[in-house]
C-alpha cells in the first residue's frame, strides 16, 4: 500500500547567545530593516494618507419659493421689468414692477421622501409693444446632505438667457449640481452656508443687486449651479400673450468629496503598510534562517526536535 504524507508541521529551533553579542546586534538590525523600510516605501510612493474621499448621495433639496426675476425688454420700450417674492425689492421697482403668475410643483418620483425635480412655470404679462430679449432669474433652494456630515445650506439656481429675437417662451430643463471647492467634513453639523442667498429683509437696493448677490454667492466654497447649457428660446409671441418661463430643475444624485476621518485614514495606511511589510517579513525571515543555520553569527543552537531528525541539518 502506497503511503502519502497526510500531515506535516514545522519544528522549532532555538539559538542562544548573549544580549551584547553579534547575533543580538544582527537581530536588532534585521528588525529595524524589516519594519521601517515598508513604511518609507508606502509613504514615498504617495497616497499613504487618504486625504480626500467621495461618496454618493441624493441631496434633500426643497424649493424655498423665493423668486427674483428681471426681464430685459427691447430697445423701443427700454429698461426692464422686475418682480420678486421679496416685498422690499418690489417696492424699489416702482413702474418696472410687473407681477407674474408663478406656479411651482416639486415631485418625488420614486417616493423615497426626497424630492427629485421642480416644475416651475412663470407667466409674465406684457403689453403688446413690449418685447422680452433677455431674462435673469434667481430661484433659491434649501440643500441638505445627511450621509456623512450633516450639511445644510441655502443655495440658488441662477438662470440668465438672452436672444436677439424677442421671445415668447423660455424652456429650461437642467440639473441643480453641487459645486465644491473644498471637501466636506466626515461628521458633525455644517451650517456655514445656511444663510439666505438674498437678504429679503433688507430695504436697500444694494442687497438686491444681481452682481452683489452673485459675488457674495461665489465667495462660498460650496455652491449649487443650474446645469443647462442650452435653454430653448421660443419666439413668436402674440400681442396679448404673456412671456412664459418653463423650467424643469432636477435634483440628481451627487458625488460628494469629503475629508476622511482619523480611523478611515489610519485604516487605509495600515492596509498599505502591512501589505509591503509582509514581503519584508518573509525576506528577512529567510535571511535570518540562513544566518543562524550557517552560524554566520556565533550562537548555540538548542534543538527542540525529537532525536533522529537531527541529521538533516547537514544538508543546508
Amino acid at each position: 500500500m502506497a503511503l502519502y504524507e497526510l500531515f506535516s508541521h514545522p519544528a522549532e529551533r532555538g539559538y542562544r547567545a548573549g544580549l551584547c553579542s553579534k547575533a543580538a546586534l544582527f537581530l536588532l538590525l534585521a528588525a529595524a530593516l524589516t519594519y521601517i523600510p515598508p513604511l518609507l516605501v508606502a509613504y514615498r510612493s504617495h497616497g499613504f494618507w487618504l486625504k480626500r474621499s467621495s461618496y454618493e448621495e441624493q441631496p434633500t433639496v426643497r424649493f424655498q419659493h423665493q423668486v427674483l426675476l428681471v426681464a430685459l425688454l427691447g430697445p423701443e420700450h427700454g429698461g426692464f421689468l422686475a418682480w420678486s417674492t421679496f416685498p422690499a425689492f418690489n417696492r424699489l421697482q416702482g413702474d418696472h414692477l410687473r407681477v407674474p403668475l408663478v406656479s411651482s410643483r416639486e415631485e418625488d418620483r420614486n417616493q423615497d421622501g426626497k424630492m427629485d425635480m421642480l416644475h416651475l412655470k412663470l407667466e409674465l404679462p406684457l403689453q403688446p409693444t413690449e418685447h422680452v430679449l433677455g431674462v435673469q432669474l434667481i430661484l433659491t433652494f434649501s440643500y441638505q446632505l445627511h450621509r456623512m456630515s450633516t450639511f445644510v445650506m441655502q443655495s440658488m439656481a441662477f438662470l440668465q438667457s438672452s436672444f436677439a429675437v424677442p421671445g415668447s417662451q423660455l424652456y429650461v430643463n437642467g440639473d441643480l449640481r453641487l459645486q465644491q471647492k473644498q471637501p466636506l467634513g466626515y461628521s458633525g453639523l455644517d451650517v456655514r452656508y445656511n444663510v439666505s442667498v438674498i437678504n429679503g429683509t433688507s430695504p436697500f437696493a444694494y442687497d438686491y443687486d444681481l452682481t452683489h448677490i452673485v459675488a457674495a454667492y461665489q465667495e462660498r466654497n460650496v455652491t449649487t449651479v443650474l446645469n443647462d447649457a442650452n435653454p430653448i428660446w421660443l419666439v413668436g409671441r402674440a400681442a396679448e400673450a404673456p412671456f412664459v418661463i418653463n423650467a424643469v430643475i432636477r435634483y440628481p444624485v451627487e458625488v460628494i468629496s469629503y475629508q476622511p476621518g482619523f480611523w478611515e485614514m489610519v485604516k487605509f495606511a495600515w492596509v498599505q503598510y502591512v501589505s509591503i511589510l509582509l514581503i519584508f517579513l518573509w525576506v528577512f525571515k529567510r535571511i535570518k534562517i540562513f544566518v543562524f543555520q550557517n552560524q554566520v553569527v556565533t550562537t548555540i543552537p538548542v534543538t527542540a526536535m525529537p532525536p533522529g531528525e537531527v541529521y538533516k541539518e547537514h544538508l543546508s
Binding site: 419659493h65 417674492t85 407681477v99 407674474p100 403668475l101 408663478v102 406656479s103 411651482s104 410643483r105 416644475h119
Partner: peptide, 8 residues
C-alpha cells in the same frame, strides 16, 4: 391646479 403652488 392640485399640488401646484402658485402666486400671482
Amino acid at each position: 391646479q392640485f399640488g401646484v403652488n402658485a402666486i400671482s
